[in-house]
Amino acid sequence: MSTPQATAESQAHAPFLQHHFHEPVQQAEAAKIGMWLFLVTEILLFGGLFTGYGILRMLHPDAFHHGHTYLDRWLGALNTVVLLVSSFTMAMAVHSARTGERKRLVRFLLATLALAAVFLGVKYVEYSHKFHEGLLPGRFYSHKGDPVPGVHMFFSLYFVMTGLHGLHVVAGMVTIGWLLRRALRGHFSPAYYNPVEIAGLYWHLVDMIWIYLFPLLYLIS
């Protein structure tokens, strides 16, 4: 946290309150606005990929339809369920932080972390299977015997979209790990649980993006 400032006001400040805020509520609301603004940038970052997906699918409808049959929709559904449940545990972690139940906070953070790891594990199984089959992006695509041309474009987008999403999952895990450390040290209280809350917002956004990726990549009919 910021170093204590030598102003007269700082006597009245709680230790977690940064010097340029007047009161904890102001600091918490500013942090939330900041996080929502950041989430909007994430939406537009992925939005570019969704736009590219839409246009390339328009250009190659048959290739996309055929490409998706190489994906295992049950693994995709499993991962959807895993992420949805992890969103629930994250929401519960925020709730526990707000009510000051430290043990439950730690437990729910651990559960979220574990579910994120399961998600990445499933992704690893899927990726290694695709690598093995030569279902690689663009220029490196080496799968033989497709009935339609252009399936490599589907896999370009598949890898870019799920890859970028996977990186966000990893970033989320790092953040949750950091929260866990602070929670174990007793940094959070009903008066100050802001970091848990805004990290939660980030984690829900990662979930939300997967909610769209799942039908667009695994369920083309």
Partner: peptide, 8 residues
């Protein structure tokens, strides 16, 4: 929307 309205 459910995620945004309730979880978030």
């Amino acid at each position: 929307s459910l995620v945004a309205l309730y979880f978030m």
